[in-house]
Design a binder for these strands. Sequence first.
DNA 1: GCCTGTGAAGCTATTCACAGCT
DNA 2: AGCTGTGAATAGCTTCACAGGC
Lengths: 212, 212
Amino acid sequence: MEKTVERLALYRRLLKNQYQNGKTHIFSHQLADIAGSTAGIVRRDFMNLGYYGTPRHGYEIKALLDCMDQFFHKPDIKNLVLVGVGNLGRALISYFTKDRSELNLVAAFDKDPLKINLKFNGCSCYSIDRLSEVIIENHVTVGIITVTMESAQEIVDIFVKNKISGILNFAPVSLVTPPSVYVENVDLALMLEKVIYFSSTEILKEKKSGSK
Amino acid sequence: MEKTVERLALYRRLLKNQYQNGKTHIFSHQLADIAGSTAGIVRRDFMNLGYYGTPRHGYEIKALLDCMDQFFHKPDIKNLVLVGVGNLGRALISYFTKDRSELNLVAAFDKDPLKINLKFNGCSCYSIDRLSEVIIENHVTVGIITVTMESAQEIVDIFVKNKISGILNFAPVSLVTPPSVYVENVDLALMLEKVIYFSSTEILKEKKSGSK
DNA sequence: GCCTGTGAAGCTATTCACAGCT
DNA sequence: AGCTGTGAATAGCTTCACAGGC
């Protein structure tokens, strides 16, 4: 149910918005519209989540959000580190220091002496020499890698040695990790290749209008 | 065969490397190792691609690359535009102006007057007022969106009006597009949520070592 | 009538396992 | 023996379609 998890995270964000705007209930087809999905899938996803709505009234947003919080292991706060303060690293720092109350970017790291001890969006940048120390002291369990492909594996080795269990990797290399570590690779160049392929291919002219 | 296309793009990059390093042939299990996949999948992918190797000698890299170039509609060059020159936009500009000979980032766009007419990695930044004009003049068919969620749809509307057929979207909103436009959404916050979920979940303790 | 929950069918992707070539 | 190509089995995801509650 990997796909379901991805969508639940999306629904969660959308529903938080709706809730803040004063909405208390929502139908599967309404959520599907704003999520760019289908009513059937939304219902199936909630079925997997284990939350049940009521016919005619749909889903109660507050209760649904509580259920999702539990599903996503909240309310415990997740501590993160990011390594590689290039443009991409800085973009992610600004993403993850904004408003996202339940996740805490502890620090960023870089090998460039010019960046060390600077702050980016309020997040301190340290030398990679201090990476192990910071991970241990703050019980960091998730790391983001935005270094070059040459340096990625050495950072991963530090992560693994210090028992990080999840890695979001933007370096275009296949990382070597023990099976207990979850790695999500995001390869921006490949995503663009994919868009180019499927947009030039005229095969898919019969699709629905939403998106995704 | 969406997954196959994604992997073929990856194989292609890896094989180019191997080829430059003087390697002429490769076995399915070798490619699988560097791609973080399995020998069976590699063979199945090449079967879908329509390229056939020879038992005992594996695949001939040069011929395979030619075959892939054709599959990915090369050698025609793809013209791109990027809208939103924030940190993420700049990161992508530097990605896509580097070495990637067959794709051409025509220009970047932003609404911030301070950025207009500057160059980023050799790529000019113009006002969004000129977006339509540049798309048409350069026959741009793919656009990258790295603006805020508030501005994303208006950019998409300009894209659609000017017949762009593929969009790589980093704004965390569901875009409204006609069915003929291929949209790939990349939501960085959601990817992190996913990593957090699957790394805290202890369910997946029996996986293989490669990655992805 | 309108909306949910869900079995069943359909589709896509991966894995197994083995025949066949060199 | 070593490696490919591939049918068949399996697993995972989505869609269909409809019974049942309000």
